[in-house]
């Protein structure tokens, strides 16, 4: 068994109004100095040893992310 993390982020050129809303809220809450926020998704997968890196990449590219609008990174982490 292994833990796999997949991070999915909106591409840089895609307007991220949710991240902007978070960034705009921070000064109102008294947190200054944060110049930009982008909001994405974080998946944690528990996989058995039969799942290879190519399969994980396929899961990320065809399902967890939409490559038209999002970039993704897969990494194995110690459980």
């Amino acid at each position: 068994m292994a833990r796999v993390v997949v991070d999915v982020m909106p591409k840089q050129e895609i307007l991220d109004p949710q991240g902007q809303a978070v960034a705009n809220a921070l000064p109102r809450l008294g947190f200054d100095g944060v110049t930009s926020v982008r909001q994405g998704k974080h998946f944690e997968l528990e996989v058995d040893d039969s799942v290879d890196d190519a399969t994980l990449a396929k899961i990320a590219e065809t399902f967890l992310a939409n490559p038209v609008i999002e970039d993704w990174v897969v990494r194995r982490v110690d459980a």
Partner: peptide
């Protein structure tokens, strides 16, 4: 249809949220 690849592009969150 966009997710299926029958049409190009994607639909994302409204700019005004």
């Amino acid at each position: 249809l966009c997710e299926s690849g029958l049409l190009p592009g994607a639909l994302v969150r409204n700019a005004g949220l």
